[in-house]
Design a protein around this nucleic acid. Structure first.
Length: 321
DNA sequence: AGGATTTGACCGAC
DNA sequence: GTCGGTCAAATCCT
């Protein structure tokens, strides 16, 4: 079941990514159209995701206790009104100021982080910038602790974080860790995250993201250095390379300007720097590999297809700045 | 030495 | 008044 949901998520994100990039071309008519092969293979990948999901749903429809099972009619053939209603309600639930999504994780640490709308620019110059709790859009994901190694480590998501606080939370067995982007000072990156173990499932982290990463928007921001040591392991479980910042994935429900950014960290040297990005990002990178026979996830190769936000003005980005 | 983490204190939101 | 988020000094680590 988890696998099926994972595939659905991946399919959605690939589709949204494709849509986003197509819109990019529509709104920037000076750009060359994307290669037909690229579009074709993107569609194939999306289709594969949903086909895989359906296969798993059919072969093993038992819902996991960790996930809210969709109504049984989802598994039935056809599209009746109740299915549409269920889908709509799910979309509505995710379109508020705060969205939450559970990300199936298998094996190694994976994370599906969100590209967040960040509100008005943080007043870092003030002594204690505070804002109302609902001012900043939050996105919450749940990430399984690594099954191997130190399960106490906070989940990796491709960014580098610096811990700036920890606090016992009322009613929670485990303290909440407060992290901010390592590049906060250098690039005024306002991104923060909170990591907390679930009371009922200590092997799952609830990660709340606040603010959007702007460190990769700077022309002097750290460049992407895709790790070469990471390799795919068992099916559906990959140790993932850091996707470049322009490989953005919107999680549904947040509208066009609210989604997820999977961005990469600078070529990290410490263990915490090693990125473990979401499955879909890996697949897109894999697509790039396949298309260009580069043998590695080359940023430059994909930039040929999807220009970096740094290179091309993006109205969504400008809204965030 | 410099960056990261820890931890008690501070302070705003509720 | 309580709680959660942040600050910042002390400490640890590389």
């Amino acid at each position: 079941m988890e696998e099926a949901i994972s595939f659905i998520f991946q399919g959605c994100k690939l589709a949204q990514d494709l849509e986003r990039n197509l819109q990019h071309y529509v709104s920037n008519n000076q750009l060359l159209p994307p290669p037909i092969l690229m579009l074709s293979e993107s569609c194939d990948e999306i289709i594969k995701m949903f086909v895989s999901a359906k296969e798993r749903l059919i072969s093993n429809p038992l819902p996991s206790s960790s996930y809210s099972p969709p109504p049984p009619q989802l598994f039935s053939v056809g599209h009746d009104a109740s299915l549409h209603e269920w889908l709509r309600s799910a979309m509505a639930a995710g379109s508020g100021s705060s969205t939450s999504v559970q990300v199936p994780v298998t094996g190694t640490t994976q994370l599906d982080s969100g590209q967040l709308l960040f509100g008005s620019s943080p007043s870092s110059s003030q002594q204690r910038p505070r804002r109302r709790k609902d001012d900043v859009e939050k996105k919450t994901v749940r990430v399984a602790a690594p099954l191997i190694g130190n399960t106490d480590l906070p989940p990796e998501d491709g960014y580098t974080w610096r811990k700036y606080g920890q606090k016992e939370i009322l009613g929670s067995r485990f303290p909440r860790g407060y992290y901010r982007c390592t590049h906060q000072k250098m690039y005024q990156c306002p991104a923060k995250r909170q990591v907390q173990r679930l009371d009922h499932d200590p092997y799952t982290f609830q990660v709340t993201y606040r603010g959007n990463h702007t460190c990769h928007m700077s022309s002097t921001a750290p460049s992407i250095a895709p790790p070469t040591h990471m390799a795919a392991t068992s099916s559906g479980t990959h140790q993932l390379p850091s996707p470049p910042p322009w490989l953005e994935f919107n999680l549904g429900g947040g509208g066009s300007s609210s989604g997820s950014t999977m961005a990469a960290t600078a070529g990290g040297s410490s263990g915490a720097d090693i990125a473990a990005a979401g499955p879909s990002s890996y697949l897109v990178a894999e697509m790039a590999d396949a298309m260009f026979n580069s043998g590695s996830s080359s940023t430059n190769s994909m930039e040929f297809l999807f220009p970096s936000p740094q290179d091309k003005w993006d109205p969504e980005d400008s809204k965030n700045n």
